[in-house]
Each structure stands twice: as C-alpha cells, then as structure tokens.
Amino acid sequence: MKCIVCVKQVPDTSGVVAVKEDGTMDRAAMATITNHDDLAAVEAALRIKDATGCKVVVVSMGPPPAEGMLRELLAMGADEAVLVSAREFGGSDTYATSQILAAAVKKIGVEDDDIIFCGRQAIDGDTAQVGPQIAEKLHLPQVSYAAEIKVEGKTVTVKRLLEDGYMTIKVQTPCLITCVKELNTARYMSVGGIMECYQKPLEIYNYETLKDDPLIDVDTIGLKGSPTNVYKSFSPPVKGAGMMMEGADKATVEKLVSILNDKHII
C-alpha cells in the first residue's frame, strides 16, 4: 500500500501581496508556503504510514524552486518526492493541470490498495477543481472535503463536509480524497527528518518523462491545451472613503445613531 499526495507551493496571500504594474500577481516577490489544505493531506497520509508502515510519495507540479517545499515534506516523513516541472506544462488551467498530474500519478503507479490525496483547494486560486479532475482522468472514485478519514484494509471511511453537517462515505481503494485543513494539525519536520531528507529520492518528471502518456497531448496541456484563459484581470477598486466620526465616546455613538436614523438605515 502507498499514499500519493499532490501538493502545491503557493504565494502566501495572507502576508504582503505584490502586484505588478500590469495588474498581475508578482509571485517572485512573495513568500511561498505549502498550501494549507495540502499540508493536511500530507499529514493524513503520514498518519496512515504511522499506522500501517505504508509508503508516502509527495508530488508537486511547479517551477524548480518547489523542490525546497518537497524536501520539507520529506523531512516531515514522506518517503519519496516527485517534482513535475517543464516549460511545456506552464500556463495550464485546472483541466490541463489535472491531465499532467494524472499522468505523473500513473507514472508513479497506482496499485489496488493505494490512496491518492489532494488538498481541497489552493489559496491562490481557490478553485477546488484539480482533485476531482485528477480522479476523473484516473477513473477513480473521489471523496472531496474530507474532515475525517479512517482506513481499514481496502475500505476508506470519510466524513465529508457539507455546509450544514456532513456525509459519511465508504469507498474502496484505489480512490482519491481531497482534504480540508481542519482535518488535522500537520506535524513539524523532525531533526532526524531534516538530516535524512536530502538522502531521500526526489525525482524530476519533465515533458520527456511523461510525453508517452496519452493524457499528455499538445491539445490538453499547458497554455495551449487549457480550455479556459484569462480575458481580463484587474484590481478591485476600494470604495470611496466614508465618514470618519470624531472621538470615540458616548457623544460619538449617539451622533452616529442619529445619522443612521436620518438616513433610515436603522
């Protein structure tokens, strides 16, 4: 048995956000982190490893610097890493990305008792699409929004979040599960893990590595193979500044209430 975990390195949108003059995000100028939901997916896999001794493979598509993130995940306890990186893969939308990641997962090899994990969504795009789309490309059953996971042999029981509760779903391996960050608290890298992580295998899959897979076609990968593209991107304007009240005492709030009354707001 093994767990394959798809992870993404993302700009930290909660920190300083750099926008270029043309209105696009200046990714190079921003700090990068491992996407939160993906970290939960890695931790879920590591817990299965703790219980069963199975292998954990982390895979990421991205530019060469994403190797640093993969080393960190190896230091957390993952056994092997794969970086999917090639110019031909650049500009992929979620459809094209899932084609490429599905091909990479196939190359790693999906066996009968394997589980593929993804984060529910990445904080840079918030699409939540790549997980289900990989599942479709691999013809695997999917369970998204996992908030609890239990593995017994080849049966995986997942508590799947709804807006107002949850569904409990049983699914057989091989399957794909997308995790929400509330699923667990990811462990830190261990000192031993940091020592070992550079000895662990990290493979690069480029275009050559994957090109023989039928999923890798000029019409289905990269910018050209992406069904969607950006028509316009723009910064939202801030609303015109409102009225700052003077002071912060009783008189201030009473004045505010009288304005709200005059304007029929309350």
Partner: peptide, 23 residues
Amino acid sequence: ATNIGRDLGPRCAARLHTGLTAD
C-alpha cells in the same frame, strides 16, 4: 458553488473536456 456543486462541476468538466471557472 456549494460543497456539492464544487464536487460535481470539476468532475463533469473533466469528463466533457471543457473549461470550468470556479466560484
């Protein structure tokens, strides 16, 4: 874009070979 819609949409778009824009 409910928790159900965001499970269904991407799976359908991938099967139909078309684009999907989220949320």
